[in-house]
Computed example of a mutant assay.
Amino acid sequence: MWTRIFWIDAADRAARTFAQALLATITIGDAVYSVDWHAGLGIAVTATIASVLTSIATSKVGASGTPAVVIPAVDATPAATADTHTPAHREVKEWPTS
């Protein structure tokens, strides 16, 4: 929680939360001038505060030094498929040019 990267990640999450909450208050079919911006901004700020507090509360749960709750996988290799005869990559075929 005391690292620069933690606060950059937390600010990124909070900014996304703010934008999503504000967007959620704008309903489909309403004109921009008829939206209750005071209430929408209040909801977005409240959600942003909740996001920052959640990042702080979960700072010791996930990966060290980040607000993430999920620990990133150490091995990023794809899981084995049921069909062992399938190659690990797919061949890309080009469209005929003529």
Rank of each mutant, 00 (worst) to 15 (best):
Pro72Ile: 04
Ala68Gln: 00
Trp7Glu: 06
Val32Arg: 05
Thr48Leu: 01
Asp75Lys: 01
Ile43Glu: 11
Ser64Pro: 08
Thr58Glu: 14
Ser59Phe: 09
Thr81Cys: 10
Trp2Thr: 12
Phe6Ile: 01
Val74Ala: 13
Trp37His: 06
Ile56Gln: 11
Ala63Trp: 15
Leu53Ser: 08
Pro78Arg: 09
Arg4Thr: 10
Ile8Pro: 04
Thr84Val: 12
Thr66Ile: 07
His89Val: 14
Ser64Cys: 09
Ala50Val: 08
Ala19Trp: 03
Thr48His: 01
Thr86Phe: 11
Gly42Phe: 03
Leu23Glu: 01
Thr97Asp: 08
Gly62Phe: 09
Ala68Trp: 01
Gln20Lys: 12
Thr86Tyr: 12
Ile49Phe: 01
Ser51Gly: 05
Thr86Val: 15
Ala10Gln: 10
Arg4Asp: 15
Ile43Gly: 03
Gly40Glu: 00
Thr84Met: 02
Val52His: 08
His85Trp: 06
Thr3Asn: 09
Ala68Asn: 02
Ser59Ala: 15
Thr54Lys: 01
Ile43Val: 13
Ala73Glu: 11
Ser64Leu: 11
Pro67Gly: 08
Pro67Thr: 00
Val69Ile: 12
Val45Thr: 11
Gln20Cys: 08
Asp83His: 03
Leu22Ser: 00
Ala10Leu: 09
His89Ile: 06
Thr66Asp: 07
Arg4Lys: 12
Trp2Asn: 13
Gly65Gln: 09
Thr81Met: 05
Gly62Tyr: 09
Ser98Trp: 13
Ala44Gln: 08
Asp36Leu: 03
Ala44Thr: 10
Val35Tyr: 13
Thr27Arg: 15
Ile49Thr: 04
Asp30Arg: 03
Arg16Asp: 15
Lys60Ile: 04
